[in-house]
Design a protein around this nucleic acid. Structure first.
Lengths: 202, 202
DNA sequence: TTGCTTGCTGACCTTTCGGTCATTAAATAT
DNA sequence: ATATTTAATGACCGAAAGGTCAGCAAGCAA
């Protein structure tokens, strides 16, 4: 008798399938990716995939969870631990975090969200709860901290933390659409941070 | 005999079909829209649609072109005609133009571009030539004009007109993904313009 | 009225793909 | 060894949707 035709590895399967799904979605998008393709990449049968994930959409949620959630936790953890002043935090860890995003796997998830949001409202809710609202809350916290300490003046920016997100989003969209036409995203983001800071400094 | 069951209107059909397709794509996106649905909206049979457009993708490209083309020169025309100073132009016509975009039909095209760009390189080229590169050039022109006239100082912004686009893109993406969770896009864009101007004013 | 061209219809074909399930066999317990 | 459990397979199903085509009828010419 030859080698075993497969091994039972209940522990590892979900992770492996999620990783394969991410790779496939990244290349072709969610709708255009066939479940069978994901299974093939994971070295697994389609049936097994449905043993671990009830539907294709559940699989998508798992991908979001595995790719994006850790990033947000990372940001809030950094913020909680840091004892830097508001400006120093923004120019240091926050700027670095923002500059990393466009080249990271998270940017792919964002592209997928833009494409799929209209047809998957529950996915949007999930993303809002787990990612977007937390990120914005973190930004707001930094800004308020700066106002309290007297570093920053009161301004519209405090209520519009999306101003920090804008150049990141721009970079991600640019990379998605105009992949080959280069844009210095690091510089774009740094300039925005610089502008915001001189605008709100007391 | 009753009224004729249809009229032959070879001249108008393509336009009517692309208009119907645009409306449908805007609501559901490209993949989720059925060709039959487009035909129904256009008051036409599916077969006729395939008489004028070889495939669903050809129809998609026709839609993009028909929406984008008329818009191309609006900004540059305004710019050429205007004799305002750089700051006045930015705070006036340019700001108004930027604020109109997120609620306009153009924003839907951008969403479609983000979703479909990876699989339609020729569409990206078209969009780059006809829209993106021209818009950026116009912005650059305004900035340079301001520097020459002494209104603005030299800064990174001159080489990064994408800083003007960023809040617009943010607003469009926000509207696409978080439609119901409100964001004051007018204020976001105005604040950005305000920030940029105080940053670059001589 | 008659005959011809062609815009137009809608039933139909074919393929794709998410999801199911009867069956197999790897691992574990007895 | 034998029985039991369950991870894993892959053939299959049914619905959906892109695309086709034989035929119909609107409009025109003679």
């Amino acid at each position: 008798m030859g080698p075993p035709r497969y091994q039972r590895r209940k522990q590892d399967r979900p992770q492996e399938i999620t990783a394969a799904a991410f790779a496939a979605f990244a290349e072709k998008g969610f709708t255009a990716t066939k479940v069978e393709e994901v299974a093939r990449r994971a070295g697994v049968s389609k049936g097994l995939l449905y043993l671990y994930f009830k539907t294709k959409e559940e699989l998508f949620k798992a991908v979001i969870r595995s790719v994006v959630a850790p990033r947000i936790d990372e940001l809030t953890r950094t913020l909680d631990r840091s004892d830097l002043g508001a400006e120093a935090f923004i120019r240091g860890p926050l700027l670095a975090f923002m500059q990393r995003l466009p080249g990271s796997r998270a940017s792919i998830v964002i592209r997928l969200m833009i494409s799929e949001a209209p047809r998957h409202p529950d996915l949007v809710d999930y993303y809002w709860d787990k990612v977007a609202s937390r990120g914005l809350a973190a930004l707001r916290q930094v800004l308020e901290r700066g106002v309290e300490s007297g570093e920053f003046r009161e301004s519209a920016v405090t209520e519009l933390p999306q101003l920090f997100v804008a150049p990141v989003m721009m970079s991600i969209v640019w990379g998605t659409v105009f992949a080959e036409r280069s844009l210095d995203t690091d510089r774009l983001i740094e300039t925005q941070v610089d502008m915001i800071l001189s605008y709100i400094k007391a």
